[in-house]
Simulated scan of single mutants.
Amino acid sequence: MTEWIALSRTRHTDSHFLPRQGYAFAADRQVTPILLAELGKLLPHYPLGFVQQGDQFQPVALLGLSGPNRYLHPDGRWMADYVPAGLRGYPFTLANAEDNQQVLCIDHDHIQEEPNDSVSEALFDDEGSLSQRVQQTLDFLQQCESNRQLTIRACQTLGELGLIEPWPLQIGRGEDQTPLQVQGLFRINEKALNALEPTAFADLRKHGALALAYAQLFSLNQLHQLIEREKFHARQQPAQSPNGNLDSLFGEDDDLSFDFGD
């Protein structure tokens, strides 16, 4: 389990960190939270849905059905042209402190008290400010957090209007196997969406919820991608070398830009 440590100018002035190398940290994730701002980038690659947290819903991209993350190659590379924003800030994250202020945290396993190889980087510069790389990550995480608040409000609107329903997802596995049943997912009730009164429909558009609703519905076309990925991983053996035909699956969207437009 990840142990998050709040960065401190006094405690970590001379400390270094190991930048993320690939996405092995996300190997066990079957879903990952998404943002309104990245819907257009997600749609070509991921089926989208919702999960329930308490009395709230959260939009997610589906990464696996019967097992762990199927968008991850064994060597840690991401097998899609676009990596969800929520994964790109690692090994850093924003967390709420006791005074409800957000603080920048780092995975404890990525801290080095002294540099011992050419890979590690400084957390702070000579003047005691965040290093350029860390400041860039903080800016990215703050922009993501701002959009996350908009995403939460959009989900609240969908929930209040009764447009989110349980998703009894079943995946066929051949004639001699029972279908795979995926539990805990929710989807948009398309019939209820189409039956909305004009004022309620306008309220959806106002809060960005309409785009989220349609994105989830349109993304169902990508379920076949995830199913094919399940089959691919099932065929792989640990001793096999990577298939050269996989090169087209690996994306280069590995930066910390918040420009999710075309």
Rank of each mutant, 00 (worst) to 15 (best):
M1D: 07
E3D: 15
I5G: 00
I5A: 02
A6K: 07
R9I: 09
T10L: 10
S15F: 14
H16P: 03
L18P: 00
L18N: 05
P19W: 03
Q21M: 15
G22Q: 05
F25W: 06
A27Q: 13
A27N: 11
R29T: 06
Q30W: 03
T32M: 06
P33S: 04
P33L: 03
I34C: 01
L35W: 01
L36N: 14
L43A: 06
P44I: 10
P44V: 08
L48H: 01
V51I: 13
Q52S: 09
Q53E: 11
D55L: 02
Q56E: 11
A61L: 03
L63G: 03
R70T: 11
P74T: 02
R77E: 12
A80H: 07
Y82H: 07
A85H: 04
G86S: 11
G86C: 10
L87F: 06
G89H: 02
Y90I: 03
T93S: 14
E98A: 13
N100V: 05
N100M: 14
Q101M: 09
Q102K: 14
Q102F: 08
V103K: 09
V103S: 06
V103P: 01
D109C: 09
E113D: 10
E114S: 14
P115Q: 10
N116Y: 13
D117F: 02
D117M: 09
E121T: 05
D125A: 08
D125Y: 03
S129A: 14
L130W: 00
Q135N: 12
D139Q: 14
D139P: 05
F140L: 02
L141N: 07
Q143C: 09
C144V: 13
S146W: 08
L150Q: 10
Q156G: 12
L158H: 00
G162T: 02
G162Q: 06
L163Y: 04
W167L: 15
W167F: 15
P168S: 15
G172F: 04
G174K: 13
D176M: 09
Q177I: 01
T178K: 12
Q183W: 06
Q183E: 10
G184W: 12
L185N: 01
R187Q: 14
R187Y: 02
I188G: 01
E190M: 04
K191A: 13
L193K: 08
P198Q: 09
F201N: 14
F201K: 12
D203H: 14
L204S: 00
L204C: 02
R205F: 04
K206D: 04
A213G: 00
Q216Y: 07
L217M: 05
F218W: 07
S219T: 05
N221A: 15
L223R: 03
L223Y: 01
Q225H: 15
Q225M: 08
L226P: 04
E230F: 00
H233Q: 07
R235M: 11
Q236T: 05
Q237I: 03
Q237F: 01
P238F: 00
S241V: 10
L246R: 09
L246W: 14
D247N: 14
D247L: 12
D255T: 06
D255W: 06
F258P: 01
D262N: 14
